[in-house]
Design a protein around this nucleic acid. Structure first.
Lengths: 133, 133
DNA sequence: ACGTTGCATTGATATTCATCGATGCAACCT
DNA sequence: AGGTTGCATCGATGAATATCAATGCAACGT
């Protein structure tokens, strides 16, 4: 982990620089890129979506694997990457292993990609191809 | 492009499934993964951040390149990937090429990663390591 | 016309990644 | 105890990616 953040009441990302408002430094870029890279695969996106949208909040691996045309080790590999990115966590209960979403990370990403409400962006009407005459 | 979406007044992502609420289908996962993969590199994240946070909304490539310890073709390559992902666009004006953010895409990503306000997540207190005794 | 500057493209190479089969291992069931 | 099932790890391989040097090319300045 080695976390340089402190989660304050689950809304920590609002206090962060924000990616769209100020240039991120190398360290933060490297850290964030690891998470985005984990999301940069269709299989992992579907896995995350299946886990996050599950009623009850958790899914058994045995419910995930048959949804894909991939071998079980491959699914296990993708789940590991999602877990290393801090997007999900898991626990073994008896025979099965259950995964669940860590909403802190998705919240943080959403916050980082959200620009401040009234930011004019300053060129919304200029040389946009097709918009401006 | 081959877009299966229609941007309705710039707030299209609010009407979408949402990734965290229902399992995404393969096509949407593939489409989204392409964008997240573009964000999954520290150099590209910094480039996007520098472009998005620029006062005036656009940056000349000549202002981007010296910020990195990489060759100019490499920066050009990363910019191309960001552009192909629909995150930025560019235009040549005289000698220089200017890049700017396409906020529709970041808005869409932020929306997709945002879970509905009152979603309990159902297991916020259970077997979380360290939280439960 | 000529050289220069700013940026993109090409071709080549080293690294990373996705995937699989094989294996390991814990938990369950006779 | 022995067999079975569920999942992770390992080792190997083909595909994708990041990077560079070289080149192309448009625009600008003499």
């Amino acid at each position: 982990m080695s976390n340089q953040e402190r989660v304050v009441r689950g809304r920590t990302e609002e206090c962060r620089p924000g990616l769209l408002t100020a240039p991120v430094d190398e360290d933060q870029a490297t850290e964030l890129a690891k998470v985005f890279k984990a999301l940069g695969d269709p299989v992992r996106l579907r896995l995350l979506s299946m886990i996050a949208s599950r009623a009850g909040g958790e899914v058994c691996v045995c419910d995930l694997t048959p949804a894909f045309d991939l071998s079980q080790p491959t699914i296990s590999h993708h789940l590991k990457l999602l877990r290393q990115a801090g997007l999900i966590d898991c626990e073994r209960r008896g025979t099965w292993v259950y995964y669940w979403l860590l909403p802190e990370m998705t919240d943080r990403l959403a916050g980082i990609l959200t620009r401040p409400a009234g930011q004019p962006l300053a060129r919304a009407d200029r040389t946009h191809s097709g918009a401006a005459s």
